[in-house]
Design a protein around this nucleic acid. Structure first.
Length: 443
RNA sequence: GUGGUCGUAGCUCAGCUGGUAGAGCACCUCGUUGUGGUCGAGGAUGUCGCGGGUUCGAGCCCCGUCGAUCACCCCA
């Protein structure tokens, strides 16, 4: 029997990597709660018709099937599929609980999602998303499009990550511009522009001409727009200078300028208005966001989202929303695997209580419990082996302190420096940075 | 889902035109018989991803499969 091999697209972490992930998630959670977002957890499955509502994403869904199901059993819309994001389940949850929720409602949700795609670096079949959304009843004020961007900027700040950049656009702006130009199928035009980075200027021009019947001049104007990218609100003048007018364009310009101005003020250097951001998902109707790791753009967006006006609607009421989803796995797994991110140790343990002989175990347990009582993670040595072995046990795991009991009383040794001093167990505290493992970045 | 490349010890890798496996690091023991890391000596380790085929003989050739990775697709 050979060793089991990993399953493609289902990454699993080692303990010290998981410590990093856990701390990042804790950080995000604290930040979201500081902004007043309540936590929510939704079930892993949704009915297929809910998941397929957006049409094109259908092929990515993992379908759930009973082992004992008969082949004759229908696997249609009443079948269950694993959710592929957290926005669609949330929209369903809002509709289901509309009567019990207070609007505007803000929530965060940190859960795994599943997609049946072929894995690549940064692309997984099971991965974690950290999602925030704000939904309202009927109308959603535009200022929430500013707020969610600020929350994410705040949440990502202070994490030991490479430089991140948020690219923002507004669908009204792009579609208004295309409309003003006289292009009919503005949705399709948007999808084509979204390919700009991948297939290049000329191929996009050709597609626009072939697919949406754009004239060469219209195609050129679309590409001109897409080339605009500014870190402040100067994009407004640049777009005005292109001479296209449309009411929808005006709306988009105002909304995007508000987002960019606010985020640039709050998190300098973080945001950039980027007219070629379009987003694949077709339910977005206003601001769209994509965050990239600078220099790692090939990984794709590590956080994205936007405003959606009609995702949650029961026919009578509509609950427009805006939200962003951080791809926790995409952000962390490549950094963990390359060693760019690591933890100071692989266990929570701060102190190892050494054992002189097995008879002392009850006393050692009591000693450990006193440290734990003051919040110091402590474990007792697995055996009364030679002290050198016991120190090695701690060293291999990165446990910084070993406690000995000898003629001099209780002594704590910092095994990094070798310093060993007699201490009062009920008064001793490790340096704050040693109490819990922390994240370290490779140079 | 489609196509390309790759898969040898825990890790990084070597292995000639097919002749039944090696290095460095890590690990274990001892020197140092109850305070680790250095140094020295010694030791253990693989169904060569898995399954099948060709051959007197396969780590090496062929087919399949699984995994890794890249591109497409799509997206966090």
């Amino acid at each position: 029997m050979s060793r089991p091999q990993p399953l493609s697209g289902f990454p699993e972490l080692l303990p010290r990597q998981r410590i990093v992930e856990q701390q990042v998630v804790d950080h995000l959670r604290r930040a979201f709660e500081l902004h007043g977002f309540a936590n929510l957890q939704t079930r892993a499955v949704e009915p297929m018709d809910q998941l397929l509502r957006k049409g094109e994403t259908s092929k990515e869904v993992y379908v759930l099937r009973r082992l004992q199901a008969e082949d004759t059993e229908p696997a249609g819309d009443d079948a269950l599929g694993l959710h592929f994001d957290l926005t669609v389940p949330f929209a369903r949850y809002v509709l289901e609980n509309a009567g019990k929720l207070n609007f505007p409602f803000r929530r965060y949700q940190i859960q795994p999602v599943w997609r049946g795609e072929r894995p690549q670096s940064g692309r997984y079949r099971e991965f974690w998303q950290a999602d925030i959304d704000i939904v309202d009843l009927g109308e959603l004020p535009a200022h929430y499009e500013v707020e969610v961007a600020l929350v994410v900027a705040d949440a990502l700040r202070g994490l030991p990550l490479p430089k991140l950049r948020m690219h923002v656009n507004n669908r009204k702006l792009s579609q208004g511009f295309y409309q003003g130009l006289g292009i009919r199928d503005t949705e399709e035009a948007l999808r084509i522009i979204d390919k700009l980075d991948k297939i290049g200027h000329d191929a996009v021009a050709k597609l626009l001409i072939d697919t949406v019947d754009a004239t060469p001049e219209q195609a050129e104007a679309c590409l001109k727009l897409a080339s605009i990218s500014t870190a402040d609100t100067s994009f407004v003048e640049q777009i005005r200078a292109l001479g296209v007018t449309d009411p929808l364009l005006d709306e988009g310009l105002d909304e995007l300028a508000a987002v960019v101005a606010a985020v640039a003020a709050e998190a300098p250097g973080f945001v950039v208005a980027d007219m070629k951001i379009a987003r694949g998902l077709d339910y977005y109707t206003g601001t769209v966001y994509e965050v990239f790791i600078e220099g790692q753009e090939h990984l794709g967006s590590v956080c994205s989202g936007g405003r959606y006006d009609k995702l949650a609607s029961d026919g009578k009421h509509t609950y427009p929303g805006v939200g962003l989803s951080i791809g926790v796995s995409r952000l962390l797994v490549p950094l963990l695997q390359s060693g760019a991110l690591d933890a100071t140790r692989e266990v929570p343990t701060c102190v190892l209580v050494a054992l002189a002989n097995e008879d002392e175990r009850p006393a050692a347990n009591a000693l450990a419990q006193r440290l734990r009582g003051r919040g110091i993670p402590t474990q007792v040595s697995p055996s009364a082996a030679k002290f050198g072995k016991q120190i090695k046990f701690a060293d291999k795991r990165g446990i910084p302190f070993v406690l000995f009991t000898n003629d001099e009383g209780t002594q704590i040794k910092d095994i990094r420096s070798g310093d060993q001093t007699t201490v009062d167990v009920d008064a001793w505290n490790p340096p704050a940075e040693d109490l819990h493992p922390t994240i370290v970045t490779a140079e």
